[in-house]
Design a protein around this nucleic acid. Structure first.
Lengths: 223, 223
DNA sequence: TAGACAGCAGTCCTCCGATGTATTTGGGGG
DNA sequence: CCCCCAAATACATCGGAGGACTGCTGTCTA
């Protein structure tokens, strides 16, 4: 195994063993390199790899720190990975989203506070009568983000958000090519909010399933 | 933004734009560094970060290549990330797994061939009467891996595998075996196989839910 | 002719030492 | 007491050098 990979494992070990905890500061580059038995350049490659997946937080002029290691922080590297996939694999992501999103919506129905639900309704209301495509996409992302956050599960929330990335492009296409898609999406969003507000998990789950399945079915035909 | 991060974006752009496709070879370090306008050391940090998430495949003495970019390849970096989480966040991962695994099992019920099911049964049969902890863990991982693969969705398969991080699984298993729950787990595994073999998706889903929920409930009490 | 071996070119791996840049900190002046 | 600036600290980037590994080719041997 390469020296750099060994360094990654050693730093990982320092964290998982508890020697380094969230927020702790690592020794400065020169010292850590000497301790791990490699050069600063090689160590920097290891640190860069770990900072990519949000395990380390490097601040120039200050030092290198262990992040909070919260699930949402580590998993948001997922969206970066997802960007590499082409349209022919988007269907697989959508299929997973059709599994996760309904469950997340059902959980949110039981766990969201009345205030959270009011905010969710506000998101829908903020959309004007004739929004741009960009506004539609942003609004849609925010809507699903709040529901995912409402599930009370940071891992689930991050996964749903990460999987929404690749479907965004598809949604843009849909907005451009399919007449009436925006209006139907708005109706389904409202139905989901109503189901959540009336505390009916299974109804919310069903609407969320229909919502995602609609996008999936459209995309399946388009490809 | 740092030079290295710019380089990462540029390489990412070269791939997403189609200039570089799966299996293509990148220019050698010196040339690529000159083209992107930075030093080889900084470029190496960028390449290291991208090879960590399985976007690039670096072969010493040969060259640097773009991977196949298959979903399973890119997502299996997930297990590396999961290893950083402590027991108090494992519950969130298990909650997500309780959502994904039943659906994956239901999909597998409809999509697995008779040969695949026979292999799945073989996995259970291979376990002797008095297996070691390691054999139990390996067997359990293989069992769930085959079901996830049987779902026919590489993304779903990778997520399920990634969420069942080896470290996490080992820790949980150690505790379960101490309580003598190995026998019950085997019964549940057999029930899942029977449901799949008789092509009853909802029954398979139910058994999978019970199986994961059992682990989850045990862990919730243990913490 | 088929197989084994040595040599060679290409490429990545690791290291070194120096310079550039951002942040923090502490002292001096108002 | 507050503000501003300079020194200290730590990461960022650079160019060059030698070493190690891979794949290919040409040669030798049976």
């Amino acid at each position: 195994m390469a020296l750099t990979d060994e360094a990654i494992d050693k730093i990982k070990g320092m964290i998982t063993s508890g020697e380094l905890g969230p927020g702790d500061r690592l020794p400065k580059e020169a010292d850590l390199a000497e301790r791990l038995g490699l050069s600063r350049n090689s160590l920097r490659e290891a640190v860069k790899a770990l900072s990519m997946i949000r395990v380390l937080d490097v601040r120039q002029g200050d030092g290198t720190y262990v992040t909070s290691l919260e699930p949402d922080l580590l998993l948001d590297a997922l969206s970066f990975v997802v960007d590499f996939h082409r349209d022919d694999t988007v269907l697989q992501f959508l299929e997973v989203r059709r599994i996760l999103e309904p469950s997340a919506t059902a959980l949110a129905t039981e766990r969201m506070s009345d205030g959270d639900i009011a905010k969710l309704q506000n998101v829908l209301d903020e959309l004007g009568t004739d929004p741009t495509i960009e506004a539609l996409v942003d609004n849609d992302l925010e809507f699903h983000r709040q529901i995912a956050a409402g599930s009370g599960n940071a891992v689930l929330c991050s996964l749903v958000e990460g999987l929404s990335g690749p479907t965004t492009r598809a949604r843009i296409w849909r907005g451009l090519t399919q007449e009436g898609a925006a209006a139907r999406t708005r109706e389904q969003h409202q139905a989901i909010v109503d189901a959540i507000a009336s505390r009916q998990p299974e109804l919310a789950r069903a609407w969320a399933t229909i919502h995602v399945a609609g996008v999936e079915e459209w995309l399946r035909r388009a490809l």
